[in-house]
Design a protein around this nucleic acid. Structure first.
Ligand code: SF4
Ligand code: SF4
Lengths: 149, 149
DNA sequence: TTATTTTAAGACAAAATAGTCTTAAATAAA
DNA sequence: TTTATTTAAGACTATTTTGTCTTAAAATAA
């Protein structure tokens, strides 16, 4: 699996929030619309909040929203915040202390592929994805129940 | 993590065997040279044997070796035998029943990246890797203790 | 035959990941 | 002030992955 479940949930929630304006959205709403366990999602979003990618507010009409930093963030930023940078720093075979000067048979191709994955996730910011998402009506929920407002 | 530990171990053992001729190599030797738990590696190689990618022989001077099919196999074949095809069939966001006709924002880029990973692993057979490995003395063990015979 | 070497099979344990539940703290509204 | 709503924190459970151990079966050699 390329990304952990936590990471996928975090990405989908980020995409959900990117479609919204500046209001706080309750985690309950996100978890229901995207069909993700509420408590589990809460923990994941707490991480992103701690990382400064999101802002939260307690109480009635409270919830969570992307911070300014979060709106500019790319999917890669979200992935690294949740899964860590290992996917983009470690090698495919996981050999310790190895590198270009004493490479394994995969080295060259893996470096290229790794960069391709990174580039794909870094290409567009959440802000831009939201713009394209609204234009093209891309979906981010299973049932297609979600609507770009 | 792109590949499971089982998968990485299986790949490294396959590379090890690709460097050898047709003799049976004991799993004990592989596990010691590549610093992988003997019993764990045994289970992984049993899978590859069941899949017809390797052949085993019991008793003194017994061991394991690549089958003719295994020598022609690519790294992708090994990966699919151990981790299954999901990495190359499923989408990045894991949304069920979703696809090109109703895509998520990642769809196009993910399809490309997924193909890039697949191509990287499919590019060369174990046979060819062994040839290049011997020429270039690529390494497949942590300490660099391994020698292409 | 008997002992030794090796893979096969599967029970078992440990660790990591995923998911649930309860309580506390902050905020708003009644 | 009291109650309701919401995130924060963390204990707890379940599942999957990873790793260990024991016994069986096959093959060889003494
Ligand atoms: S040579 Fe490169 S790809 Fe191969 S194990 Fe080392 S760092 Fe990883
Ligand atoms: S649109 Fe494509 S990439 Fe996105 S979730 Fe569906 S299958 Fe996966």
């Amino acid at each position: 699996m390329l990304l952990s479940k936590s990471c996928v949930y975090g990405l989908r929630a980020s995409l959900y929030l990117s479609a919204k304006q500046d209001e706080y959205i309750s985690i309950r709403e996100i978890s229901e619309k995207l069909d993700i366990s509420f408590h589990f999602l809460t923990k994941i979003l707490q991480q992103l909040t701690a990382d400064g990618l999101m802002e939260s507010y307690k109480g009635p009409n409270g919830g969570i929203r992307l911070s300014p930093k979060g709106r500019k963030a790319t999917l890669l930023d979200i992935v690294i915040a949740i899964d860590g940078p290992e996917l983009f720093t470690q090698c495919a075979l996981g050999l310790p202390g190895c590198g270009s000067e004493d490479p394994c048979p995969l080295h060259e191709s893996w470096l290229g592929t790794r960069t391709a994955i990174s580039n794909m996730l870094e290409k567009t910011s959440l802000e831009e994805i939201a713009k394209e998402g609204k234009q093209n009506r891309f979906r981010i929920s299973a049932g297609g129940t979600f609507n770009w407002s």
